[in-house]
Design a protein around this nucleic acid. Structure first.
Length: 557
RNA sequence: UGGGGUGUAGCCAAGCGGUAAGGCAGGGGACUUUGGAUCCCCGAUUCGGAGGUUCGAAUCCUCCCACCCCAGCCA
């Protein structure tokens, strides 16, 4: 490997050095989720890091399920995770790896450790083990079973495997050092008895390896060179190394990086599960959830998520990334890719007094001003249109470019109109706005090059679609949802307005929208078609707003 | 008071002994058939603090401070 690489983060620096020093002559990584929950954006960070590093150094990245605990795992999670990794655009070469495929090998290796006098069967109860582990400042106490003979340990371990003991009756422990300053080294448990059938190995095993024992072996067996994990495993590395060294097997290097935290969101499986189980959201794929499935349904594209992860960088410092950066990445991608369409979310009628009563015109509209290849479409236009309620004002503040009596605006892709009046209902609410149009401004241009400051969108009131808009906002009100009043939990910070449903008027082209397809509804924001839609009832989820500099101007005045 | 880590702008983050990149957010302006997009311009005399080494320190040394993780037969 004589290609020269440039490191873009500290992990790549280490990898490059390992390559130069000859510690490894290739690079291989892995993404090792436990199939006990859905993937969220925090996992996306691990996925992107692992797969991108493999790609960069010409190696591969295994998708490996760390399925060592049958009481928490199931096949549905496996399928969902496979789905999500694929959706993110990563190719793991058709082969999916499972820790459970290595159970036989691990068992043999455990026997080897026993034979070396480095592991023993311990009959202390969970409580006794805990008590004898000592504390952060006090050393632990040796187990009374610590010095059993190798033969006895081998025999007992086999009986454990054969199901001759009850759950909790005994465990296999590594024999290291009960007074080690690092708690993980105080004779850690390697195997425990679990009589729950495993989703893959079924009833074959009743002993299961713990993370510390299993993980390094999984990496070693797969010949992973760089085992990338999060910071909380930093003080497990000494154990990871110990097992591999004692066994004398292929020895990957574990490197830890900081997990992702995002403002206004929670990213713990436990809390996410709580939100789902208590109905605070409508399932794991609720568009407000930070799960991959939620983000997808919200309208985030894979490219925007990958870009986001690449933008935040990889370091060892605990950090909380601003949610606004994720939104920025979404806008950046969607601006280039989303088809434009016109939707009026809070309609009032606009009547063009001098437009022929029965005339219908089909006007050309640009599908994406950022990319000509998206082409044009025809949008129908008539005497009666819907426009946004807030695009008309009786007595607007200064700097209001939209409709007010006497002011001219452009109906995008259509004509210039001058507002001539308005009508209100008995409560004083505006119901209809009247105007006249300039027949010579078709397409939205005029020959005299007269300046029209405001451009507004519209929908033909004689030819439109009723659609549902699900307007999503942040799930939590506080940047840090954990910051609560006493006696309250994070759900007290839930945003009661995180979902607002609106019924809107839309141009008919939306009939052809596909599930999850992204759109920019002109001047409203980015939306994507929700799979709950039916042929007669289209639903669009708001992904993110368009940037709005008018609101700033409003605030100032 | 044990062990493992981290501290550079409001938020991320480069920097690796030669005089503080970039992105987001924020502010100002130009332009615009989306008040979108785009384009300019504005931020740290200082890198958690204090000493020291050096011609020169965010980078090296010492001490101190703050914060995070660890006492599952979870991962």
């Amino acid at each position: 490997m004589d290609k020269s690489f440039e490191a873009s983060n500290f992990i790549e620096e280490i990898i490059i050095k390992d390559l130069q020093d000859g510690r490894f002559n290739y690079v291989q990584t892995r993404f090792p989720p436990e199939p006990n929950g859905y993937l969220h954006i925090g996992h996306a960070k691990a996925i992107v890091i692992n797969f991108e590093i493999a790609k960069k150094f010409g190696g591969k990245c295994n998708l490996r399920f760390d399925d060592t605990n049958p009481t928490k795992e199931n096949i549905d999670y496996i399928n969902a995770i496979i789905d999500d990794v694929k959706w993110l655009g990563y190719d793991f070469g058709d082969k999916v790896y499972y820790a459970s495929d290595y159970f036989d090998e691990m068992y043999e290796l455990a026997k080897k450790l026993i034979e070396k006098g480095k592991a023993y069967v311990c009959n202390q109860s969970t409580e006794e083990i805990r008590r004898n582990r000592g504390t952060l400042t006090q050393p632990g106490i040796d187990s009374p079973y610590r010095n059993r003979s190798i033969e006895e340990n081998l025999d007992l371990f086999e009986k454990m495997k054969n199901g001759e003991f009850k759950e909790g009756e005994c465990v296999l422990r590594a024999k290291i050092d009960m007074s080690h300053p690092n708690l993980n080294m105080r004779d850690p448990v390697m195997y425990r008895i679990i009589k729950t059938p495993h989703h893959r190995t079924k009833g074959k095993w009743c002993i299961y390896p713990t993370y510390d024992w299993a993980h390094g072996l999984e990496d070693s067996i797969e010949k992973v060179t760089h085992s990338l994990c999060t910071l909380e495993f930093e003080d497990h590395r000494i154990l990871y190394d110990w097992f591999l060294d004692e066994l004398g097997v292929f020895h990957p290097r574990q490197i830890e990086f900081a997990r992702l935290n995002l403002t206004y969101t929670v990213l713990s499986k436990r809390k996410l599960l709580h939100l789902v189980e208590n109905g605070y959201v409508n399932g794991w794929d609720d568009p407000r959830m930070p799960t991959i499935k939620g983000l997808k349904r919200r309208g985030f594209t894979r490219d925007s998520i990958v870009d986001f992860i690449k933008t935040i960088g990889v370091t060892k410092s605990n950090s909380i990334v601003d949610y606004a950066l994720l939104e920025h990445c979404a806008r950046q991608d969607l601006n280039k890719k989303a088809k434009r369409a016109m939707v009026v979310q809070d309609p009032i009628k606009l009547i063009i007094e001098n437009y022929p009563d029965d005339k219908v015109e089909y006007l050309e509209a640009v599908n994406n001003p950022e990319d000509e290849s998206y082409g044009k479409r025809l949008v129908s236009f008539s005497k009666e249109l819907f426009i946004e309620r807030n695009d008309f004002a009786i007595d607007p503040p200064k700097g209001f470019y939209r409709l007010k009596v006497g002011q001219e605006v452009r109906l995008v892709f259509a004509y210039y109109v001058v507002c001539t009046g308005y009508e209100t209902d008995e409560n004083g609410n505006v119901v209809t706005v009247r105007c006249t149009y300039d027949p010579n401004s078709k397409g939205g241009w005029s020959l005299d090059a007269r300046k029209v400051k405001g451009t507004i969108h519209w929908v033909n009131a004689k030819d439109y679609l009723d659609i549902e808009l699900r307007i999503y906002d942040k799930l939590f009100l506080k940047e840090n949802p954990e910051e609560t009043e006493e006696e309250k939990d994070f759900t007290s910070n839930l945003n009661p307005n995180s979902l607002v449903i609106k019924f809107a008027k839309a141009e008919k082209s939306l009939l052809e929208a596909k599930d999850f397809e992204n759109f920019q509804f002109l001047r409203l924001g980015y939306f994507c078609k929700d799979p709950d839609s039916t042929k007669n009832h289209l639903i669009f989820n708001k992904t993110v707003d368009l940037k709005d500099s008018y609101s700033k101007i409003l605030k100032k005045s």
